[in-house]
Design a protein around this nucleic acid. Structure first.
Length: 663
DNA sequence: CAGAAACGGGG
DNA sequence: GTGTACGTTTCTG
């Protein structure tokens, strides 16, 4: 048996002999060299030099050796809810015994109510989608749960492991394995991976960008050649590969487009890249590169198992993907990272760095290329600048996404393409597993119910007062929503709710013990709609948010205590990630396709929010702030000394309790 | 006017 | 991949 320390980059499964086999893609460092120093971060950063990676240099923090770990022990399953579990088991066997491996009876919680459920273990994940509808419609089956959680996600959650963090794996080295055609070490696991709590933050990031000949407007990949490939990496590469530019020191001149593509591929391989980054590369660079490479029969075989570029259908068009090589499209990330009117690379760069970048109008690129003079040089500068800017943006913004990956516990590739609400949802799915809670099904609203969805009243809005105002102060309540959820215990598992059709209470820990809740004082009752949330026990979502906020406080404390700048920075990013997660959490209730969707919860949060904002505005007036304009998350007020009234002690206390103010 | 289709980014 | 598209604007019948 051998052991490796292993950073997990990516995960999937393949099918061998009709059974699923999990593959973990990542990089390892031999354990001996890793044990030599337990305090990491003492070697200097990986800047420049040392580009040839084939020397065994263990003095940096990079994990060097490609490794694919194989685990054939994990089994797909769903939960079946039934009053008569024996009958359910027989009926299920009756419709698909050959797809079913085993049954187990487990005690789990549904909205905190202890329940005996039937765990149906399938031979193969595809049997889940194949059989679930039939199982659901069986007489003895009241419902099915957790039938739509992708196999690889289930593996990460159930084994409590996190991508982009360090794992310990134990197993045997194999000489070869089906579907793996590369020099990666192949490692067959003897037991599930173990999470090692060590922070890994050094990754090899390489950015790339294509320039394409385009005399007819947007280029057509059947006709228009790639003329430049810009490459910039945090390992010190900064160049433009092209058939022109012999006089430029940052240009690498090759003989043809075919050589250009081959050279690009070989650079990515030589640099042992962990994360490949582009800007709109899901929709432009990678599709274009693939089309052009096909013409020359070039394989874009950058996958850790030797596989090629593949496009995965995702919400938002296609996502370019390599097994074990993480592709991040910064455009998608920026749309969530900052709020702007437009998200061109120029605009984003200006926002983040306050500098204009070199610009060449898109429709002029072919003319600059043909000019063969000063304009050609300008085009080279532009190409380099594009990719250098992309790297700068990546280095600034990826740390936060990496932290979210390590908190949410899904692949970095996925996290970078997920809406924040989805990130929060997968985080909650993991927390539910830890709590033995069964995850609610996704609501599947028909198109009509979607239309009929009552519009949530939303936050309080005060129309702005016309005129030019000076001395404006902004009160920001965004971070207030998590505290409202916690203080009012807003959660579907402690909400007293009647089913609209049957008139019965929806089953949860409160309705199950209704005799204990025989008085209003046991509830927080929301303003306006009067939704009732039991004060005890703590609801699932308030408890998760509470833990997130506590973790965040601990990090902020640790930040104050440390003198180490690098550590401070790392803690700060972790702290920010938790803040984002907490602030996203309230939105979950309002989105129809989310598993914890609850219109009552969403309404109650905003109702209490409105109440709070109006109270605060009143109090603020006593301090000389005249509210000018208010919106859901806060208000703007004009400061006018003459308005200050006598401040009572009571008001002072209120002011003390105010949430974080920005500006 | 409602519902469908296109758009964003990229060159 | 045991998940199928986000919110907004413009076009079309």
């Amino acid at each position: 048996m051998e052991r490796r320390n292993f950073v997990l980059f990516d995960i999937d499964y393949i099918t061998i002999n009709e059974e699923p086999v999990i593959r973990l893609f990542g990089k390892s460092k031999s354990c001996d060299s890793d044990n030599s120093n337990n305090s990491n971060n003492n070697s200097n950063n990986s800047n420049s030099n040392n580009n040839n990676n084939n020397n065994n240099n263990n003095n940096n923090n990079f994990y060097e050796r490609n490794l694919v770990a194989i685990d054939d022990s994990f089994e797909p399953y769903i939960y079946v809810i039934s009053q008569n579990i024996d009958q359910a088991r027989n009926e299920i066997l009756g419709i698909g015994s050959y797809k079913i491996k085993d049954f187990e009876i487990l005690r789990k919680k549904i909205f905190q109510v202890e329940t005996e459920v039937l765990k149906v273990i399938f031979i193969h994940p595809r049997h889940v989608s194949g059989l679930r509808d039939e199982i659901r419609s069986l007489d003895s089956v009241d419902g099915i749960r957790e039938h739509d959680i992708p196999f690889y996600r289930r593996y990460l959650i159930n084994n409590n492991i996190f991508p982009m963090s360090l794992l310990e794996i134990n197993g045997e080295v194999l000489n070869s394995f089906e579907t793996i055609n590369s020099d990666a070490e192949i490692f067959k696991l003897n037991e599930p991976p173990k999470s090692l709590n060590k922070n890994i933050s050094d990754f090899r990031i390489l950015c790339f960008d294509l320039e394409v000949y385009n005399p007819h407007g947007m280029p057509n990949s059947e006709k228009d050649e790639i003329i430049m490939i810009g490459v910039s990496s945090n390992t010190g590469i900064n160049k433009v590969i092209s058939t022109k530019g012999k006089d430029l020191d940052f240009a690498e001149t090759v003989g043809s487009e075919e050589e250009m593509i081959n050279r690009f591929i070989s650079i990515v391989k030589e640099e042992n890249v962990d994360i490949i980054v582009g800007y709109n590369s899901d929709n432009f660079d990678f599709p274009y590169l693939k089309d052009r490479a096909k013409i020359y029969n070039i394989k874009l075989d950058l996958g850790m198992d030797g596989s090629h570029l593949n496009f995965i259908k995702r919400g938002y068009g296609n996502a370019g993907s390599f097994k074990g090589l993480i592709h991040i499209d910064l455009y998608l990330l920026m749309r969530r990272y900052i709020s702007l009117d437009r998200y061109t690379l120029e605009r984003v760069y200006l926002e983040l760095f306050g500098e204009e970048k070199i610009d060449v109008a898109g429709d002029k690129i072919w003319q600059f290329w043909d000019s063969d003079g000063e304009d050609l040089v300008k085009l080279f500068d532009y190409s380099l600048d594009d990719v250098v800017s992309t790297l700068k943006i990546a280095e600034l913004t990826l740390p936060l996404s990496l932290e979210l990956t390590k908190i949410v516990g899904q692949p970095f590739f996925d996290i970078s393409r997920m809406a924040t609400g989805q990130q929060a949802e997968w985080y909650l799915v993991r927390k539910a597993f830890e709590d033995d809670e069964i995850v609610p099904n996704k609501p599947v609203p028909s198109s009509s119910s979607r239309r009929n969805k009552e519009q949530n009243v939303g936050g309080y809005v005060k129309e702005p007062e016309k005129g030019l105002h000076e001395n404006l102060v902004q009160f920001d309540f965004r971070s207030l929503y998590p505290s409202i959820i916690i203080s009012k215990n807003i959660s579907p598992d402690v909400l007293l709710k009647k089913n609209a059709y049957t008139g019965e209470y929806v089953e949860n820990i409160v309705s199950k013990n209704l005799e204990q809740y025989n008085n209003d004082e046991y509830f927080n009752i929301s303003p306006e709609k009067c939704h009732r949330f039991a004060k005890e026990p703590v609801g699932f979502i308030p408890s998760v948010i509470g833990n997130v906020l506590n973790e965040r406080l601990k990090l902020k404390k640790a930040m104050k205590e440390t003198e180490n700048k690098q550590e401070k920075k790392s803690l700060d990013v972790q702290q920010q990630a938790l803040k984002r997660l907490a602030n996203t959490m309230y939105g979950i209730y309002g989105f129809l396709r989310f598993r914890w969707y609850s219109n009552e919860c969403a309404e109650s949060i905003t109702a209490w929010g409105r109440e709070f904002i109006q109270n605060t505005m009143k109090k603020a007036e006593n301090y000389g702030f005249k509210a000018i304009y208010a919106d859901t998350d806060g208000f703007y007020a004009e400061y006018n000394e003459n308005l200050i009234k006598n401040i009572s002690n009571e008001d002072k206390n209120v002011e003390d309790k105010e949430p974080e103010k920005d500006k």
